[in-house]
């Protein structure tokens, strides 16, 4: 497959320029999140500054939750970075580890606070995992297929397989493949109490990124090609993603033994952080570095090879 465009948003800002900056200069320190319902618990987080959401497309989607807004922002950024594809041939594949758990918690919090008959229908309807894909398709007015894949560790790798199946079978000609995960109070509590985070190197993050993918075409039109690693190929560089926050249940063969540079500290721990490593891999391609291998340390899915 070819990558035609990449858009993203994370703690370090919006767009590939911001990622490039972060790779060279590092990122601002994490902010401190004190759990509103459990003030005694606080944790550093890499969260997205609210002012990034203040764009017309997102203001028009007045009810959108943070989960949907992050996806809209990254999808819009992705399409700005490439030639616009014919929208009637675009499918959307969205990967998430935890879905819009903050909306889900807000909804059930309303049931607890006010009673089972007084939940908010807006929170409920936004607690479905496909709400972000729906906001993206509504913003772009795409009418093709949109599917959301949920997995705690390997959602991005699985979404890449869905994209390949759709392109190979001719279902669509372009896939807007996104990943999104958000920070939310109840999950932070679970991570904190379950000792999945600490204050130094396991800092939760949030964000979204989208790749615009097509079947392989002329090299001139693509940012990079992307495909599963083949045996016998030597990469010039290896990136190892270490974003995952939820350990895989055993037994599982993962790529944990791979060695290479890791940039996961730039966006923080999140289930679908691997997509940011793929974006880094695309940035690392130069005339000297022709092949970059990008390994998802926590996943059972084969590593991806990006080539110019």
């Amino acid at each position: 497959m070819d990558i035609l465009g990449i858009g993203l948003v994370a703690h370090f800002g919006k767009g590939m320029g911001a990622l490039k900056d972060a790779l060279s200069n590092g990122v601002a320190p994490p902010s401190t999140y004190r759990l509103p319902h459990r003030q005694e618990i606080s944790t550093p987080v890499y969260s997205i500054p609210d002012d990034l959401f203040d764009i017309p497309a997102i203001r028009a989607a007045r009810r959108a939750n943070r989960f949907g807004k992050m996806a809209m922002l990254a999808a819009a950024d992705c399409l700005e970075s490439s030639l616009p594809p014919p929208l009637d041939r675009v499918g959307i594949v969205l990967a998430t580890g935890l879905g819009p758990h903050a909306s889900n918690m807000e909804f059930s919090g309303g049931l607890i606070q006010y009673g089972l008959d007084q939940g908010s229908p807006t929170h409920f309807s936004h607690s479905v995992h496909n709400s972000a894909a729906a906001y993206v398709s509504n913003m772009l007015k795409t009418h093709g297929p949109a599917t959301t894949i949920t997995h705690f560790q390997s959602a991005v790798g699985q979404a890449l397989q869905v994209a390949k199946a759709w392109l190979d079978s001719g279902r669509v000609d372009y896939v807007l493949l996104g990943a999104v995960d958000e920070i939310g109070e109840l999950m932070l509590y679970i991570f904190h109490e379950g000792q999945l985070i600490d204050k130094t190197d396991r800092i939760p993050g949030e964000g979204s990124a989208f790749l615009l993918l097509s079947r392989s075409g002329p090299a001139s039109s693509r940012l990079a090609s992307i495909q599963p690693m083949r045996s016998g190929v030597e990469a010039d560089l290896c990136l190892v993603d270490d974003s995952s926050i939820i350990p895989l249940p055993t037994p599982h063969q993962t790529q944990a033994v791979a060695t290479g540079a890791s940039y996961s500290h730039l966006w923080g721990k999140m289930p679908t952080g691997y997509i940011f490593s793929l974006a880094c891999a695309a940035l690392k391609l130069t005339p000297e570095v022709q092949k970059v291998l990008c390994v998802d340390k926590s996943s059972a899915i084969p590593a991806m090879l990006l080539e110019r």
Partner: peptide
């Protein structure tokens, strides 16, 4: 191993993915 989360269309979409 694909868990499809498209709300009430999830089951049908899962079969569509299997087909592809």
């Amino acid at each position: 191993r694909v868990t499809v989360t498209n709300a009430c269309a999830s089951g049908t979409d899962a079969m569509g993915l299997a087909l592809d």
